[in-house]
Write a protein that binds this DNA or RNA. Sequence first.
DNA 1: ATTGTGACCAAAC
DNA 2: CGTTTGGCCACAA
Length: 112
Amino acid sequence: MQENPQWQQIYRVASLIPAGQVASYGQVADLAGLPGRARLVAKVLKAADASQHLPWHRILRASGHIAIQGQQGEQQRLRLVSEGVVVEGMRVKMSKYQWQPSLYLMLHELSG
DNA sequence: ATTGTGACCAAAC
DNA sequence: CGTTTGGCCACAA
């Protein structure tokens, strides 16, 4: 865990991504109020532990590629598939699955 | 203080 | 499609 408010905000945004949808590291950073800090999001997710119940597998590169190499990456692919997301190779079509937060969410969950 | 390394990104070729 | 380039940072050496 981490008490750093920036990390907390990243956890908060990530946890809102619905099953069957995906977001990019950069998108999460933007929504968390940290524009241009996609690498921080990646770092935070890597450090996160299972007890936080974060849907880390719904976060990909902006290109739609799974960022993790090896066994973990394969695990991410499987989790996405189990949610109904089509993964071709190690890539997801962002245009089809990208999370688009509603105005309601923006006002009541993200901005506050 | 400087340098190298990341689960990154967008633009340009 | 693939690579390079310049930006972004956090962190360890």
